[in-house]
Simulated scan of single mutants.
Amino acid sequence: MRFIHTSDLHIGKTVSGFSMLEEQKAALKQIMDYVKERQADAVLLSGDLYDRSVPPAAAVTMFDAFLTGLSEMGVTILAIAGNHDCGERIGFANRILEKRGLYLEGKLEAPVRFVDIPDQWGFVRVHLAPFAKPAEVRSLYRCEGSMKTFEESFEEILRHVTYSPGGRDILMAHQFVVNQGLLPELSDSETRVSVGGTDQVEAALFQPFCYTALGHIHGCQQIGKNPVYYSGSPVKYSFSECSHRKSVLYGEVGENGKVTLERLPLTPVHDMRKIRGRLADLILPEVVSAADPEDYILAVLTDETELLDPIGTLRSVYPNIMQLKWEKRAVEQDDTVIHDDIMKEKGPYGLFADFYELVTGKTMSEEQEAVMRETAEQAEEEVS
């Protein structure tokens, strides 16, 4: 069975006021070309199909055209909702669409729904696990006792999976997966759903699958030694992704379930890059022409004196400049970024625990910890 794996389309996203629809349309066109060229049997879309739960009309129209084009090729399309998507909207009319080979799984089912895709050795079973919070899993599976973490909830989900008799199983999931506590390579454009690290799921859980097609992280990467892969987003959505080489993953599942993978590159309409220097130097013709001046630009100015309308001056030669920083201010901002990273990692519970110890000189009791964790989870659910 031949497949294309991608995720985190975030159709309808804007970056620094710039619509990414043109970039997204070009990336989707290239994906369709690869599907046709490689004669793929299936396309796996592992969540965050849209950038927000209620996408703009232009985003819906673009995604509709993409799905229609794939459907006309006769390829099986399997898509799950991510944390940015509205599950009910993604799953609308999914039982009707199945008849055209289009499987849109918006809400988690118990047990996890699967689709068997035939090939020359029988079939490959693809399991669809859209994003769901522990509270949703606890309710859906009628679990007794507490279920606080995403890992606990995924352990429960996998306990009820119906594996194929041939052992050729693929899992599609949209989770924050780690390898023995080691975090994946992250970027600034990802949104984590974390209370003290409770969103982490260990990659070892996916050992029964011959391939795990993940979404959620925007850089293409393998997690651990098993075939557990983030495809990464097909478009760059932050300047922390400047070094990324965007791609999709093409895989073939052999007779024994072994998967061979290949990264297929995607070419952006406009790349995303950083430039640094004095304003007068950055607008020199030889500097401007050294790369595509229509790239999306973050400019870091090293000038020590005040400048008159530097953004306007830069935009006269770099029409798609997105951000402007001064080096001195950038250093100050770097401190803030480090501080923000610590805050994101600790989460509301960890920050309160530090605050409590600082004020009282004591650590919280088990009863206090339980109350605080429950309060932090409720607050997180209300915000998200």
Rank of each mutant, 00 (worst) to 15 (best):
T212K: 07
G197D: 11
V201S: 07
G196K: 06
A203Q: 01
A173M: 07
G196N: 14
V201Q: 09
P165A: 06
T162P: 03
P208F: 01
E202W: 01
H160G: 06
Q200I: 01
N179Y: 10
A204M: 04
R192G: 14
V177T: 12
S189P: 12
D169I: 08
T212G: 03
Q200D: 07
A204W: 02
S164Y: 03
A203E: 02
N179K: 09
L186E: 15
P165G: 03
A203M: 00
V193W: 07
L182F: 05
L205A: 08
A203T: 00
A173Y: 13
T198H: 15
I170W: 10
T198I: 13
H174F: 10
P165F: 07
I170L: 06
H160C: 11
C210R: 01
P208D: 05
L171S: 07
G167V: 05
T162D: 08
H174T: 09
C210H: 00
T191Y: 09
S164C: 07
P184H: 11
G166N: 10
E185A: 11
S187M: 13
P165R: 02
S194Q: 11
P208C: 06
F206C: 02
V201E: 11
V178G: 08
F206H: 03
T212E: 00
T191N: 15
Y211I: 02
N179R: 07
G196V: 00
